[in-house]
C-alpha cells in the first residue's frame, strides 16, 4: 500500500494504482475528467489529455516535481506523491485549452445530436470551457455513414478516443473497423465499407463519449432527458443481462448498459438485450437509475427527496437556481 496526496487529501491505495484511480477512490470534484480513459478497456487512456495533473512531488524517495503535467490515467502513483488537480491554476488553464482544442473541429451540433444530455464532451466543456470559440475556420467534414445495421457514424463529432476500437478488439471476435489516415484527417471507419455485425457491437455506442456512434434504432426518436432510466435485468445466455431501460410512459425507447458515475459500463450487454427486447414484460425492473455524474439527465427527473446524490450536485440541480441561472458557472 502506498500513500498519495491529491489536492491535499491523503489516500492509501495499492501499489501500481494510477493517479486517476486513486482520485476516483477519493471521489468528488478532485477526480480528473476523462474523455478517452475507460477502466474496463485495456490500453485505453493517455490520448485526450483532459486528465493532465501536476505532480508537485514525485515520491517520498525522490521529492522533485515532474517537469511536465502528466496524464493521470496512465501514470502510476508513487509512495508519497503529491498531486495537484483542481488546486493548480496551471492544470485548470491547460484543461481549458484542451476543451478548446477538442471543440476546434467539433461541429457543435448539440441541438440535433442524440448524445446531447449524456455527452461527456458537453459536460467537460460546460465545466471548463470558454463561452465562445476562438477558431473561425471551417471544421473538418465527413459523410454520415452506417457502419453495420445498428450503428450510425458521425465522424465529424468524433474526438478519436479509440475506445470503440478497443471494444472491438477486446469484446468482439473480430475487429473490422479502426482508425484510418493520420493527424486531423484520421477517421474511424470500417475498411472498404465492411459492416460491423457482432453480438457485442452495441457497446461501441455506450463507450463513445460523444455522439459519433449513435444507435440507429433510437436516433431522433427522443431526447434523453425526456426518458426515465430504470435499472432492469433479464435472463440472458450471452451476457449478464444487467441493463438500463429508458422509459417514457410505458414504452421502452432504448436499452443501454449501466453507466457509473464516470460514464463507464462495467457489465457490457449483448445486442440481443439491447435491440430485441423493447417490451416491458421482457425485463424485471429494479428501480430508478441513479445518475451520479453531473448531467442534464438528472435535471427535472429526480429531486432531493427521491434520489440521493452527492452533496455537490444539489446546488446545480436546484430548480430555482436553474430558472435564474445563478447556479450556472
Amino acid at each position: 500500500m502506498i500513500k498519495v496526496t491529491i489536492d491535499g487529501i491523503e489516500i492509501e491505495v495499492e501499489d501500481g494504482t494510477t493517479i486517476m484511480n486513486a482520485a476516483r477512490k477519493v471521489g468528488g470534484k478532485i477526480v480528473p475528467p476523462a474523455m478517452c480513459y475507460y477502466s474496463t478497456l485495456k490500453g485505453s487512456g493517455g490520448k485526450c489529455r483532459a486528465c493532465l495533473v501536476k505532480v508537485a512531488q514525485g515520491s517520498a524517495k525522490d521529492p522533485r516535481p515532474m517537469p511536465k503535467l502528466v496524464a493521470s490515467c496512465s501514470t502510476a502513483a508513487q509512495d508519497g506523491m503529491v498531486v495537484q488537480n483542481i488546486t493548480s491554476q496551471e492544470v485548470l488553464d491547460v484543461r481549458r485549452g484542451i476543451v478548446e482544442m477538442l471543440l476546434v473541429n467539433h461541429p457543435l451540433d448539440c441541438p440535433v445530436c442524440d448524445q446531447a444530455g449524456e455527452c461527456e464532451l458537453q459536460n467537460f466543456a460546460f465545466d471548463h470551457g470558454l463561452q465562445r470559440t476562438r477558431s473561425e475556420f471551417p471544421r473538418r467534414e465527413f459523410d454520415i455513414i452506417d457502419i453495420g445495421p445498428h450503428i450510425k457514424l458521425h465522424m465529424t463529432r468524433c474526438i478519436l478516443c479509440y475506445r470503440c476500437t478497443m471494444v472491438a478488439d477486446q469484446l468482439t471476435d473480430q475487429r473490422v473497423h479502426g482508425v484510418l489516415w493520420r493527424g486531423e484527417k484520421s477517421e474511424i471507419s470500417t475498411y472498404i465499407q465492411k459492416a460491423i455485425e457482432n453480438d457485442f457491437s452495441g457497446n461501441m455506442i455506450d463507450v463513445c463519449p460523444v455522439g459519433a456512434l449513435t444507435d440507429r434504432h433510437f436516433r431522433f426518436r427522443n431526447r434523453v432527458w425526456f426518458l426515465a432510466p430504470f435499472d432492469a435485468h433479464r435472463h440472458c445466455t450471452k451476457c449478464s443481462g444487467k441493463a438500463v431501460v429508458w422509459l417514457r410512459g410505458e414504452e421502452i425507447y432504448r436499452v443501454t448498459g449501466r453507466k457509473d458515475e464516470y460514464g463507464e459500463v462495467k457489465d457490457f450487454i449483448c445486442n440481443e438485450c439491447r435491440w430485441d427486447h423493447f417490451s416491458k414484460t421482457d425485463w424485471i425492473i429494479e428501480g430508478p437509475r441513479k445518475f451520479e455524474g453531473w448531467s442534464v439527465i438528472n435535471a427535472n427527473k429526480y429531486d432531493k427527496e427521491t434520489v440521493e446524490l452527492p452533496e455537490h450536485l444539489y446546488s446545480k440541480l436546484d430548480n430555482k437556481k436553474w430558472e435564474t441561472f445563478e447556479g450556472v458557472t
Binding site: K47, R49, M101, V104, N105, L160, W181, G183, K185
Partner: peptide, 21 residues
C-alpha cells in the same frame, strides 16, 4: 507538422491544424 501529426492526442491533432490556418 500539421500533415505529420499522428492524430492520437488532441492538443497536437487539433492544435497543429489550427496554428497552420
Amino acid at each position: 507538422y500539421h500533415h505529420e501529426s499522428c492524430g492520437q492526442c488532441s492538443p497536437c491533432r487539433e492544435g497543429t491544424g489550427w496554428m497552420e490556418r
